[in-house]
Amino acid sequence: MAETQAQPRHAELGLTDQDVLDMYRAMLLARAVDERMWLMQRAGKIAFIISGQGHEGAQVATTWPLRRNHDWLAPYYRSIASAITFGMTAEDIITAHLAKGDDVSSGGRQMPGHYGGAPYNIVSLSSPVGTQVLHAVGIAMGAWARGEDVVALTSYGEGTANQGEVHEAMNFAGVHRLPVIFVCENNGYAISVPLEKQVGGLSVAARAQGYGFPGVTVDGDDPLACYAAAKEAHERGRRGDGPTLIEARVVRLTSHSSDDDQRRYRDPAEVEALKQQDPLVGFGRQLRELGVLTDELDQQLRAEAKAEINEASRRAEARPEPDVSAAERHVYADGEA
């Protein structure tokens, strides 16, 4: 008599061994890009950077169900891993940070961390926080109005969750059951202000109830949990059953930005303890337990990520600077080919 064996957790979610290894690979690459950005900033090659370290698991996993070049992403300034998962390359991101002339996000016009790329269906991002949430809702409204099978995902921090435009966006999405996924990456700090001084009730996800759609809290250090929530949210959007708010509880492993020093407002012991929650470490352990990853393969994947960022950086640095004589272009479409 055949025994029924419980499937591994990732297989239950419909993910193959290769899928979870690819997710892990994307997380490693995002971390490698992030660490390189810090190096380049310290070396004086980049004026300013803003990091996503600690968010990679949630970002890769929540973006994973989206269909590239079909669905849409309206990211925020920590969305390195989301952007990579949705098609941007390490070279694209380093090129943008170096503000090169052929940077796909802005041609060197925007500060580092302002992800975007028309070829990838990634909406150009600005600096006032929360504005992108309405853009995702507008994209979802367009898909809804046209009867098209498209889902928009937007991400932001828990600090941004308090902006009025985010409320307006969620309310409207709830009214029309628009195909949009709100991903709040809650790392507990808005620069220096802790969650308890920002969020009344301490839960962002709970707010979804007031808008008439599900809000779920997931462990952002557990990519498979994040993926499960995002997959369900994506399917809900495609079915016409409306939005989902996913609050992913993540850790911010670095200071807010290269201009910030979190030792001024966080206990050093707290920062040290965060390293235990590094999603790369946790996911690596999980994949070993699932029998998908070995130490040897891990070494290989890390070496590949390192080689990729080295090559990406080399190529990005060789790209041309912006043409100052073209600085007045693209204000309006007039006269453009």
Partner: peptide
């Protein structure tokens, strides 16, 4: 309704969602 849409009393949403719809190609 899908082409003539009553919105909530949220001017930020009206402008921002219109921008998103324009990005989408409307």
């Amino acid at each position: 309704e899908k082409r003539v849409l009553d919105t909530p009393l949220t001017e930020g949403m009206i402008a921002g969602a219109a921008a998103g719809a324009a990005i989408y190609g409307l």
